[in-house]
Design a protein around this nucleic acid. Structure first.
Lengths: 303, 303
DNA sequence: AAGTAACGGATATGGCGCAGTTCCATCGGT
DNA sequence: ACCGATGGAACTGCGCCATATCCGTTACTT
């Protein structure tokens, strides 16, 4: 028995007449009659009761019909499912991001854009710190991560810098330097520097420490902030200052101000990282859309 | 796409290897490779990722597999359903019977036997009087009926007498004639005769009246009993006597005795009636089993 | 009532395309 | 170098479809 037999059977059942069914199918009435006869021989019982004006289903035919009626739709569904999967329109991708990446204007835009383009792809999001994101990426617990890092020392991971921008100073509102639109880092040589632990975000840590050294002073390490939100809170508590990527200015708090840096400005990169092997089609779509989106608005360079 | 393609696809998916799959199917590896290639061309996306040691499903292949994996079982189920229906192993039959038919030893046995032989046939049972059963049979509300009638004047209905037996007298325990093992009907010439209305069971009615006339007296019509159970109750109330088929003796009541008839004994037939056109296979099976069962124990004639 | 036409299914025959066989080349892994 | 696996090419046989025709039933006309 083939799907052809089922299609022919259903056509006759629907028309109640071999001749009309044959016309609808696009073959002649004699081969249709023969194909149904072959099917009845294979099954071993008549499916149609031939009458002068056509044919009616027998009880066996009705029982057969009850099961096979769904075949055409199922066959169509199987083909559509394969096609959609082949285009990456279905599947799952697990994306991680750091807190500061989330404040980037483009990252939420990428999520929104991708959901709209591929609503049937299940995209799960997970916020964590850079080090943990990289670990989970390597352990195949995540498929892609946005993080503020411009390199990952692992051949199995691809990393694209998708945007970059200046860092800014975040300091207490009552700080003398807060009166100025721009702040020279050297003005802060006597203040404590608040950072997240180096092991959770080494790239950011090292860039901030280098910026201070380039401004001529060794930073006095202040309170260690467990996460980014804590950095802002500690600054509000007048425990010191910090440097953050400019998009962080969205995170407003009482007693906190952001100021541009007068002098050499450290740059914060935003990157997309993913494993180089075993990329799903959905992930491939996600990466290419993300890179395309950032090519369109990351040129020319912002500063 | 045909079921052949699906069978081939599932075989490769299962084996992870075209050569082994071909061996399992019973064709060569090259035609299998070509058939899968044809399927992939029709769908428009690769279903397998060819690797040195065989083949793995792509995401499209996995999505396709999720839907088509059920096809072989569904195809088998359709064929089996058709075959069962063709053998009358499924379907519905609606059987009616009179109260006194139910007291026949064989009728419940027929129901039990048929249910065991064809558990998937839905058999519904309905008790009613003869006239109503015949009406419902003609109106296609019932498929077969057991009734105490030896003829039905309707060419569209087939009737088989499946058993017959003597009637017995039912009279009050205190009746003078109750002292004897056998009772001559003429002993009851002065007693009232209790019967169900003629229009609900004309055959029984006429046979009883004839029996009285053959015994030399015109019966005095007593209380009209709306149904058979009422007949026994009225006799218990000493309102008169009646004649019933012998199996009715199972219905015992205080103050009631059954006595065989001394002299010419009227006979009660039990018949199976059904329409002669449009017989379902399940009904055909039911009728043939009922007739076979009664041929085995209705010979020799009981009396 | 008889003859004729129309409708519908089934049988017979021939041809073309497809599925399967056989042989062999290529590639990757051991 | 050898082995296992896939895929290409040539060939063959079978199955599906088209065409012609027959048979049975029903409806219509005379």
């Amino acid at each position: 028995m083939e799907l052809r037999h089922i299609r022919y059977f259903l056509a006759v059942a629907r028309e109640g007449n071999f001749t009309r069914a044959a016309a609808r199918i696009g073959i002649g009435q004699p081969p249709l009659s023969q194909q149904i006869r072959d099917l009845e021989t294979e099954i071993g019982t008549a499916l149609f009761h031939r009458v002068p004006h056509g044919a009616e289903l027998t009880e066996a035919g009705a029982a057969f019909h009850d099961v096979v009626a769904q075949f055409p739709d199922l066959a169509e569904r199987a083909i559509r499912a394969a096609r959609r999967a082949g285009r990456g329109e279905t599947g799952t991708i697990r994306v991680g991001f750091t807190a500061s990446a989330a404040f980037s204007p483009s990252v939420p835009g990428v999520f929104r854009d991708f959901r709209r383009a591929f609503p049937a792809v299940e995209m799960t999001l997970e916020e964590s710190n850079s080090a943990q994101l990289v670990t989970r990426l390597k352990e195949e617990q995540l498929d892609a991560v946005f993080l503020r890092q411009d390199a990952i020392a692992d051949d199995g991971i691809r990393l694209h810098v998708i945007s970059s921008g200046p860092m800014v100073v975040v300091l207490p509102a009552g700080h003398p330097a807060a009166k100025h639109d721009k702040v020279s880092l050297s003005q802060l040589r006597d203040d404590a520097l608040i950072l997240t632990p180096r092991d959770v975000g080494p790239t950011h840590y090292d860039k901030v420490v280098s910026a201070c050294r380039n401004a001529g002073f060794e930073p006095q390490m202040g309170q260690i902030a467990p996460q980014l939100g804590s950095v802002i809170n500690f600054v509000a508590a007048e425990l010191g200052f910090s440097l953050v990527p400019k998009p962080m200015t969205q995170l407003q708090a009482n007693g906190v101000v952001y100021r541009e840096i007068d002098g050499e400005v450290p740059i914060a990169e935003l990157s997309l990282a993913y494993r180089s092997n075993d990329i799903s089609i959905a992930l491939r779509n996600f990466v290419s859309r993300t890179l395309a989106a950032h090519r369109s608005f990351s040129e020319p360079d912002e500063d």
